[in-house]
């Protein structure tokens, strides 16, 4: 039993897109689609501007609206890992999950089924970190088990201001951003 999550340090992220590219390669994402992306938020008035850069993907929410709206059970939460998964054999391509996701993390794979970040399940089940976390050259992305207090994740979280994306949606994301 584990509860996989991710910590992303917005102060370390330089927006180099290495995470995006490593995800393409690792998961063989079809051309023109992406499971992860970089967001830049610039605030203030010129010349006093402040830009925050961070990497985004499926938040693997504990209270995942994509799972509750799915009519066939194709979207499901793996109790062993906490990963929000897609069983492509059950997916009809009705796109209810895409309408439900506040993060727009899903897309329709050209093969017809809903697709999104899998937390590199094929790697993480073997004890490896996700491809994006492994590749990140500034160590801005840390992957690990939220239930393990000794994990690298908890060390990163200590003493920092932590936010999640769109907390008002009540989805309980498992990706935490360090301000």
């Amino acid at each position: 039993m584990a509860r996989y999550g991710m910590v992303i340090d917005t102060k370390r992220c330089v927006g180099c897109h290495a995470c995006v590219i490593s995800c393409f390669v690792e998961n063989q994402i079809p051309d023109g689609y992406t499971r992860s992306w970089i967001t830049e938020i610039t605030q203030g008035e010129f010349p006093k501007l402040r830009t925050e850069i961070f990497s985004e993907r499926c938040n693997h929410c504990e209270n995942a609206p994509c799972v509750s709206v799915c009519p066939t059970g194709a979207s499901w939460i793996d109790e062993e890992t906490g990963i929000v998964n897609i069983n492509t054999k059950l997916c009809t391509g009705c796109k209810a999950c895409m309408a439900a996701c506040p993060y727009d993390a899903r897309f329709v794979n050209p093969k017809g089924y809903a697709d999104k970040c899998s937390f590199c399940e094929h790697r993480t089940r073997k004890g490896l970190a996700s491809a994006c976390a492994t590749t990140c050259p500034t160590s801005a992305i840390t992957f690990g088990d939220l239930d393990n207090p000794a994990s690298e994740l908890h060390k990163k979280l200590a003493g920092r201001q932590v936010v999640t994306r769109k907390p008002e949606k009540g989805t309980k994301p498992k990706i935490f951003y360090l301000k």
């Binding site: 689609y33 992306w37 938020i41 610039t42 203030g44 895409m98 727009d104 897309f107």
Partner: peptide
């Protein structure tokens, strides 16, 4: 002022959902 640039380029998702 707040400007958001998202790298989410997925078809039918970006620039807005369709």
């Amino acid at each position: 002022m707040t400007e958001i640039v998202s790298g989410n380029v997925n078809p039918h998702i970006s620039p807005h959902m369709e």
